[in-house]
Simulated assay, not measured.
Amino acid sequence: MLSPEQLEFLKPFLAEFKELQLAGKGLTAFWERLYHKFYLVWPNQQAELEAPAEPKPPKLTKGGKISKRQVEKETPPVMIYSTMKNWKDARESQIRSYYYNRTTLGRKKGQAKVNIVVAIGKKDRVLAEHQLYSKKYYADRVKAKVDTALAKIDDVASHIKVTAQILKESWDQETKEIRDEIQAEHKRLVQEKKEKDKTLKHVLEGKGQQDISPEERAIVQEAIPELLESFCEAMAAKTGWAFSVIGGGPMAANTNAPIRVCTFHEGVIPETNQTFRGWYPEFDKLFSIPFSTFAHSVFPEAVRLRGAVNIELEKVTSPAALLESGRLVGHLQYARKAGEEEAAMAVMCGYGAKSQTRL
């Protein structure tokens, strides 16, 4: 590790490092100059060992006397490197860490900044045109041809290939009207996917986190499986650990944002090919169900309704919760204008009476 004298040596260059970093300029020349100056003072490990350490001044009491409570700390063990290269590599790494640890952009005292990197667009791809065609018209315009062809083929392994071939031929020979319909739908879905990816990237990068809309939350929630998979797979590979993650809360995209709980498990148990959930049959009973109860307690109905994209009156269980949420029935409707809360109260009172009747 760097000595107190070496740390003092590095301090005067901190301002220059900050300027270069903020300007986005390269640091190669800076490091080369700094290492050169460092090695002029400490050309090798022997020079470090021979350098006399300055004694620290004793701790004093308020009266100016030497404190009897001061504790003499043991001198930390000195790392001896086997080669000059190993010593230089260690020192240069420690020097870089010294600067980066004091100048990381966006760092606040007592807080850690977490950057989530997601391969947006690699998963949950939009179906190809012929796949959209199959999804909508397979039963009416393709299935009969496939059944006829497969009835003449005994080799089950080739069924998938034959089915795909017939589907492609049917799509290629389809009417202009249907092809135009499917192509328009494909274009719409591609554009919708681009907008979702843009929103997801916008939110995860931290822009506008103070005011994330229900629709933005719905898009991020939709990406949770990919987020967890990309994170846990990377961490499992780098650490050799197994991971089990549990989370849950209001599902913004679902009507009235009901509570949903999801778990993700990565890292199989050797010789079993099982994750923790597979290895422990009671996982859902002992973890997922209690977590769901917890989520319902910390996200009461008013909170869930406030974050819902759509609200249906019939699914509201408490009239007071809807009023407290500041929302109205429908798609992202808010009680903002004068008289809207009174109108909502009148509707909810009627609904409350109906509910009591049904009970």
Score class of each variant (00 low, 15 high):
I269Y: 11
I269H: 10
P270D: 01
E271M: 09
T272V: 07
T272I: 05
N273C: 06
N273D: 15
Q274R: 06
Q274N: 05
T275C: 14
T275E: 09
T275F: 10
F276I: 08
F276N: 04
R277W: 13
R277M: 12
G278P: 09
G278A: 02
W279T: 12
Y280H: 13
P281Q: 00
P281E: 07
P281I: 03
E282L: 06
E282C: 04
F283L: 05
F283Q: 04
F283Y: 05
D284E: 14
D284I: 03
D284F: 05
D284P: 00
K285T: 06
K285F: 07
K285W: 05
L286P: 14
L286Q: 15
L286D: 15
S288M: 11
I289Y: 14
I289N: 12
P290F: 01
P290H: 08
P290D: 05
P290I: 03
F291Q: 08
F291V: 06
S292H: 09
T293M: 11
T293Y: 01
F294Y: 09
F294H: 08
A295H: 04
A295G: 07
A295S: 11
A295T: 08
H296C: 11
H296G: 07
H296S: 08
S297R: 08
F299Q: 04
E301Q: 04
E301A: 02
E301T: 03
A302R: 11
A302G: 10
V303D: 14
R306L: 03
R306I: 02
G307K: 03
A308D: 01
A308Q: 02
A308Y: 04
V309H: 13
V309D: 13
V309L: 12
N310C: 12
N310D: 15
I311L: 07
I311F: 04
I311N: 02
E312Y: 10
E312L: 10
E314C: 15
E314I: 13
E314K: 15
E314M: 12
V316A: 01
V316H: 00
T317W: 02
T317P: 08
T317V: 10
S318C: 13
S318F: 06
A320S: 12
L323C: 00
E324F: 05
G326N: 03
G326Y: 00
G326R: 03
R327Y: 01
R327H: 05
R327E: 03
R327D: 00
R327I: 01
R327N: 01
L328N: 08
V329P: 02
V329Q: 03
V329E: 00
G330W: 02
L332N: 15
A335W: 00
R336M: 14
K337V: 05
K337W: 09
K337M: 01
K337N: 06
A338C: 11
G339F: 02
E341T: 14
E341F: 09
E341A: 09
E341I: 07
E342M: 13
